[in-house]
Design a protein around this nucleic acid. Sequence first.
DNA 1: GCAATATGTTAGACTAGTCTAAGTTTTAGA
DNA 2: TCTAAAACTTAGACTAGTCTAACATATTGC
Lengths: 155, 155
Amino acid sequence: MAQNLTSTMEDYLETIYELKKVNGVARVGEIADKLKVKSSTVNSAIKYLTEQNLVLHEKYGYVGLTKEGDKLAAGVKSKHDILFRFLTEFLMINPEAAEKEACCIEHAISEETFIRLTKFFSFLEKGFTDEKPKLLQLFEVYLKTGKRMKCNCER
Amino acid sequence: MAQNLTSTMEDYLETIYELKKVNGVARVGEIADKLKVKSSTVNSAIKYLTEQNLVLHEKYGYVGLTKEGDKLAAGVKSKHDILFRFLTEFLMINPEAAEKEACCIEHAISEETFIRLTKFFSFLEKGFTDEKPKLLQLFEVYLKTGKRMKCNCER
DNA sequence: GCAATATGTTAGACTAGTCTAAGTTTTAGA
DNA sequence: TCTAAAACTTAGACTAGTCTAACATATTGC
């Protein structure tokens, strides 16, 4: 049952997932507000996702996720989060811009890239002794001044 | 005249740009083959892009880019290239997968992120003394063995 | 407890991007 | 040189995702 969702549908799942995490429940109007679309649009998405057994919805009631839907949503969210970290911590993009950009890129990266990016962070974090990895400190200087500080790496 | 193109339209511009670079000219059928759509689909895209003054096209003839179209296409191509490098050189994703993925992500990254990524590469390349940056060598070991080699960085 | 308001649903229209099928123009080889 | 094949174009249909407008249900405060 390998779902092949459009990025639009992934966005709906992710939004429901987030609202449930933050508010405990998700409702049509909230989903619409978050995604900046009309409720009627949310309705047709919910209709489709319900048919795909990813979403649960009783008329005029709360919107939920099936086990499968929750799993998919969590996957998209993980991609979002690692991309946000990469953009802010690594490339030092400002958080508001990074947030928007992560929303777009999250649908475009593969499982493989997600895993590598995650591994890169764990590599960086624990492979360096400083609070903030030295590499990032040096890159920050380079971004600001254009000057590359010497870096000697030894095993 | 800040163009606000869909990623689909960016793909058409980029494809024309590439075909011109490789073959000297671009034709409807070649664009269709590259993008895996039918010629009739290419036709309607060309119609739109011509109206936007981004593409030049004489019936039954070659397809070209205006100055503006060329500039936009080159921008998309640059994003593609830096993403491909990041995916292959940095995350060590295999070239075929990286190529496909770069095609998707290229439409989602901002100018700012493109610039930062470019700067990160120039920082990496010249800030380290080895043929291949030591950082990448260490990350490669980490990916294969899960072991982090010691790295002492000094200014 | 019911009227006013907020929330949700349905129907139907529109756009972008795709296709198929039919028609037109160009090219190339006998 | 003219005809068959290849390349291109046009017309029209379809889908996903959006909207507006009208209708239905829930909630809330008097």
